[in-house]
């Protein structure tokens, strides 16, 4: 068995999973299972919130170690499922190392939903969360418009690579402004509250939050607290964006009239 390639494959699998928002214990478990294929007696895989290490050790040979940094994380459950599938096949000898490596490379480049689907998704989420927060058909229509501006803002901001905080703050700023405008000029009977809340739902860090709880309860305190902090930062960004939007609209309107 080509141990070097095995290491590369394992590190790649771990990196994809970590970058897609998988729980740390799942990442470590997957890497450890795949490492059992090697001829080395000691195989260790360690994943932290922001990076991972893989090492193979043998008293008679040189130690092999790979470290990978995972700076950016997003939510991509499709990739987690796909890597899971590859490792399952690899461990049951249905795939060679070379094939597994190639498949992982393909997974890394793969995108399941195009930009158009994302656009539609943002609008759909805004519309259908409105009834959950007590809105009627009118609020749903308003939320549709707000969702549209959110989707446009999302397209715009993703052209430039910026940090999470700013992206979320900007999107929720746009939501707050457009919701107040829609209520003021278009649908005076609709509730600005409902429109804003249902639109910010697509930004709320639900994934980071759930994953961090499961990490912490599994004893992975370092990565769990890192993710929890991530969730808090995003929540603060949303709060700051909405707050700034409401305040600046209020000031602007008073200055105008």
């Amino acid at each position: 068995m080509n141990e070097k390639l095995l290491m590369e494959t394992v590190a790649l699998a771990g990196k994809i999973m970590l970058a897609s928002g998988a729980e740390v214990y799942r990442v470590e478990e997957t890497m450890r299972y795949m490492l059992q294929k090697s001829s080395y007696p000691v195989a260790e895989a360690v994943a932290l919130g922001t990076g991972l290490f893989v090492t193979l050790d043998d008293p008679e040979r040189d130690t092999l170690t790979i470290a990978r940094r995972v700076p950016a994380r997003s939510n991509n459950l499709n990739r987690i499922c796909a890597v899971n599938e590859v490792s399952r096949k690899f461990c049951s000898n249905q795939l060679t190392v070379e094939d597994a490596y190639q498949e992982l490379k393909d997974i890394e480049a793969d995108k399941l939903y195009t930009k158009r689907w994302k656009f539609l998704g943002l609008i759909g989420v805004s519309v259908f969360f409105a009834p959950i927060f007590g809105g009627g058909p009118l609020d749903m229509f308003g939320a549709c418009i707000v969702g549209l501006t959110l989707a446009l803002a999302d397209l715009l901001i993703n052209k430039v690579k910026l940090n999470d905080f700013f992206v979320n703050a900007f999107c929720s700023f746009v939501i707050a402004i457009s919701a107040t405008i829609v209520r003021k000029f278009l649908l005076p009977a609709a509730s600005a509250d409902v429109m804003i809340i249902s639109s910010i739902m697509s930004l709320v860090p639900g994934v980071a939050f759930t994953t961090s709880i499961r990490d912490i309860l599994n004893g992975d305190y370092a990565s769990g607290s890192a993710r929890m902090l991530e969730a808090i930062v995003v929540a603060l960004a949303i709060a700051a964006g909405v707050g700034l939007g409401l305040v600046s609209w209020g000031v602007f309107w008073r200055w105008l009239t």
Binding site: C81, L112, Y113, W117, L120, G121, V125, F128, I132, S202
Partner: peptide, 24 residues
């Protein structure tokens, strides 16, 4: 029932944002 149906639909749209495979 209306609320439950809209919860179903909103989660369906959310799967696009989370890149959940279509079969799930």
């Amino acid at each position: 029932m209306f609320q439950v149906v809209s919860a179903v639909l909103s989660v369906y749209f959310f799967t696009m944002l989370l890149e959940i495979p279509k079969r799930y």
